[in-house]
Design a protein around this nucleic acid. Sequence first.
DNA 1: AAGTGGTCTAGACCACATG
DNA 2: ATGTGGTCTAGACCACTTG
Lengths: 231, 231
Amino acid sequence: MRQGISRYAEVADLLKGEVHRGVWAPGTAIPSESDLAKTFSVALGTMRKALDVLVEQGIVERIQGKGTYVRGPLVGSSMLRFFRFEGKSPTSKVLSVVRIAADPAISKALNVEVSAPVLEIKRIRSLEAPYLSETIYLDAIRFIGLETVDWTDSELLYPIYQQFCGQVVNRAVDTVSFGWMNAEDANNLLQQEGAAAVIVRRVAYAMNGDVLEVRLTKGNALEFNYSVTIN
Amino acid sequence: MRQGISRYAEVADLLKGEVHRGVWAPGTAIPSESDLAKTFSVALGTMRKALDVLVEQGIVERIQGKGTYVRGPLVGSSMLRFFRFEGKSPTSKVLSVVRIAADPAISKALNVEVSAPVLEIKRIRSLEAPYLSETIYLDAIRFIGLETVDWTDSELLYPIYQQFCGQVVNRAVDTVSFGWMNAEDANNLLQQEGAAAVIVRRVAYAMNGDVLEVRLTKGNALEFNYSVTIN
DNA sequence: AAGTGGTCTAGACCACATG
DNA sequence: ATGTGGTCTAGACCACTTG
């Protein structure tokens, strides 16, 4: 008997556990609010408040008149939000997908053993000109079959992770810093070596909190532009 | 008669208007939820939902057992959140406070006439070494008396705005970009002219939405570090 | 028409802060 | 002890989506 915990928070935790255990597949609807209220033996209002918690945590999504759905993978070309580009259509080109052994840094970031097999994906994203150079690291054990995927016309990676490997990205943390382009970055982005670069390090998480992907994205620092509102 | 608007949203708008009109001073408590419910002739639950809206908008703050309070000025040395610094104690030094005539750019940003009187404040913020160089623009009409303030030991500006000029900052938007230090910035920050700089442009708003302050902050780009979580 | 989430009500009790 | 916000209930009706 947990004390000091409200009924709705308790119900929220239980329901969250069921979602993480995969009781309902991402994209599918969970039972209706009134059904859930009966199952958990709480009033409708309490059940709704529990669902509010899951909605705020991005676990689940409400659609009026239809139902409450387990959220699928992250969408949106969200890397673009850091840069000055406007309404142009982005394209992606995968340069290489290779299997390497995790060095200590990657091992720690991906939470795998040192020397464990890791997939390294390199790609370039372009608007009119190339603007982002990306290197992506994945645990090869989780992403079996990814090496044989046809990457043509694959603008977004997360739907591919889900479709071919059943891995759903639910949350990501982007950490932005400043540095300089190495020869490879500069070549990819048609810049001079040593040009000013923004470096975005992304760690993407599954619904249960496991690290799924570590990504390093570099772009021209002079194109960087990002707004935050504080209250 | 607005249609398609929920009762709680309507009440929230009305209450928000009263707060903005200054019916209750920042930092003071508004009437209790049950009193407000009676005044607006709605159920307690509806009133609470209206208050939820104001809380989410940062207009008002709930404190259990005490009451609901109109939020005061923004707090926290929030510029630090863009940098790698840890738990050191920051200090500020105001270099100059001068009255100038608004050029077109400042006029537009502050929403005053071109050539209108504007206060320009320059300051340096230091941890162990200088790390931020700031230039701040204020509408001189709103900030009468600020030129005679004793700036010693004045780490935070927003409480000063409130205390001496009755101006309360409720919200701010920071826009980050990269560029290079000019001679003045470089001198302030003990860097070389042309060194890579982070530039944070802040626009700060009053509760009623008026622009109160435009601020340009420059720092060493290599110290930049910022994290965002996406769901 | 039936089912879903969204709004609203009226009342009860709890947890917290204060005098 | 009193008053505040926080939780919970049980029920009604509305707005939206779908067959």
